[in-house]
């Protein structure tokens, strides 16, 4: 028996929005620790990693480990049938292993819907992600990062991110010319969410495909802040924390000189 109840049901809409450009299907792994998902995009350039800890749910029961192969397009159709203030419960029954049920309850309990969705048999590969001490970790407002990625993609297909202790510089070039956006570390901020904080061991310069960075920024509604972790010659980690529950992380392989 698996049952996970989320009063803030709209969170699932945000999570699906945050994966839609990268994934069409994925396996949700459910265990007593929580629900997680790890999947590469179809071109194997990036990796999506979602963690929703069991203690972040309003009720959670998972008697045995369970892998649910889910067509995310189908799940999106079903989750769209919920209202933003609905309580969502995800259920899977051991006697019926080929389906998952989504139950939506209106806050006043007057409307209750349930949708049963067929599961898929997915042959997914899990990648082992090594623990890494990153040379640079930048925390910045998620909306600011979204804006930078959008603006840089007006200029070129790639962005070079250069991070020093003074700030983070995004540069792009293309047929029309070049663009640079430099964001300094905040001197002092009233609101933590508006801060730009740079933790640095050594300066790093890396180049990434803007197409993917723009896909990642679909997660902006999940968190006020985003963190960018970088080390020379390894994938960038873009992390959006999901309050009191876990995270949505994206790993993006860098562009490397031929």
């Amino acid at each position: 028996m698996f049952e996970a109840r989320l009063v803030q049901g709209s969170l699932l809409k945000k999570i699906l929005e945050a994966t839609k450009d990268l994934l069409t299907e994925a396996t949700f792994d459910c265990s007593s620790t929580g629900m997680s998902l790890q999947a590469m995009d179809s071109s194997h350039v990036s990796l999506v990693s979602l963690m929703l800890r069991s203690d972040g749910f309003d009720a959670y029961r998972c008697d045995r480990n369970l892998s649910m192969g889910i067509n995310l397009t189908s799940m999106t159709k079903i989750i769209k049938c919920s209202s933003n203030d609905d309580v969502v419960t995800i259920k899977a029954d051991d006697n019926n292993p080929d389906t998952v049920t989504f139950m939506f309850e209106s806050p006043n309990q007057e409307k209750v819907s349930d949708f049963e969705m067929k599961l898929m048999d997915l042959d997914t590969e899990h990648l082992g992600i090594p623990e890494t001490d990153y040379s640079v970790v930048v925390k910045m407002p998620a909306q600011e990062f979204q804006r930078v990625c959008r603006d840089m993609s007006q200029i070129g297909e790639s962005v070079t991110i250069c991070c020093t202790k003074d700030g983070i510089r995004f540069s792009a070039s293309g047929d029309l010319g070049t663009g640079n956006i430099k964001i300094a570390q905040s001197a002092n901020v009233d609101k933590e969410e508006e801060a730009v904080v740079i933790e640095m061991q050594e300066a790093v310069t890396l180049t990434f495909a803007l197409r993917y960075l723009n896909f990642f920024t679909r997660a902006t509604s999940l968190s006020g802040q985003v963190s960018l972790s970088m080390s020379p010659e390894v994938p960038l980690v873009v992390e959006y924390k999901i309050a009191d529950m876990g995270y949505m992380r994206y790993y993006l392989a860098p562009k490397i000189e031929d």
């Binding site: 350039v45 590969e125 990648l127 390894v234 392989a253 490397i256």
Partner: peptide, 14 residues
């Protein structure tokens, strides 16, 4: 032109 690397080049299949 720099080339796009593959993510599984960095993270091994478990």
């Amino acid at each position: 032109m720099p080339k796009q690397a593959n993510i599984s080049h960095y993270f091994k299949v478990r």
